[in-house]
Amino acid sequence: MSKILSRALLSSALFLCAGAHAHVTLVTPSAVAGSYHKAVLTIGHGCDGQPTHTVTVRIPAGFQGAKPAPKPGWTVTIRREPLARPYVSHGRTVTEDVTEIVWSARSDEARLPDDQFDEFAVRGQIAVAPGPMWFKVRQDCPAGQLDWSEVPADGGTSTRGLKAPAALLRVEPAEGEHAHH
Score class of each variant (00 low, 15 high):
residue 54 T to C: 05
residue 28 T to K: 09
residue 71 K to R: 15
residue 74 W to I: 10
residue 143 A to V: 11
residue 142 P to Y: 08
residue 138 R to G: 01
residue 151 V to E: 08
residue 164 A to K: 09
residue 40 V to C: 10
residue 26 L to C: 05
residue 151 V to N: 04
residue 100 E to F: 06
residue 170 R to V: 04
residue 141 C to N: 07
residue 18 A to F: 01
residue 111 R to G: 05
residue 75 T to I: 14
residue 131 G to V: 13
residue 87 Y to R: 01
residue 125 Q to H: 10
residue 106 R to C: 00
residue 119 E to A: 10
residue 125 Q to I: 04
residue 113 P to K: 03
residue 6 S to Y: 07
residue 144 G to W: 14
residue 30 S to Y: 13
residue 123 R to K: 11
residue 149 S to G: 13
residue 169 L to P: 00
residue 114 D to H: 14
residue 33 A to E: 05
residue 116 Q to P: 00
residue 168 L to K: 09
residue 169 L to Y: 02
residue 87 Y to I: 01
residue 155 G to F: 02
residue 43 I to Q: 06
residue 144 G to P: 03
residue 66 A to F: 05
residue 64 Q to I: 09
residue 142 P to D: 06
residue 56 T to K: 13
residue 77 T to G: 03
residue 100 E to I: 06
residue 71 K to H: 09
residue 164 A to L: 09
residue 30 S to R: 15
residue 4 I to D: 12
residue 77 T to A: 11
residue 87 Y to N: 00
residue 25 T to C: 04
residue 149 S to Q: 10
residue 70 P to S: 11
residue 108 D to E: 14
residue 132 P to C: 07
residue 136 K to D: 02
residue 59 I to C: 01
residue 21 H to Y: 10
residue 99 T to S: 13
residue 169 L to A: 00
residue 58 R to L: 10
residue 106 R to P: 00
residue 155 G to A: 07
residue 151 V to L: 05
residue 123 R to I: 13
residue 146 L to H: 01
residue 104 S to R: 15
residue 88 V to I: 14
residue 12 S to V: 12
residue 148 W to M: 12
residue 78 I to P: 02
residue 137 V to F: 02
residue 90 H to T: 03
residue 31 A to F: 07
residue 99 T to R: 15
residue 55 V to S: 08
residue 82 P to A: 09
residue 128 V to K: 13
residue 44 G to E: 11
residue 73 G to Q: 13
residue 76 V to R: 11
residue 83 L to C: 05
residue 10 L to P: 00
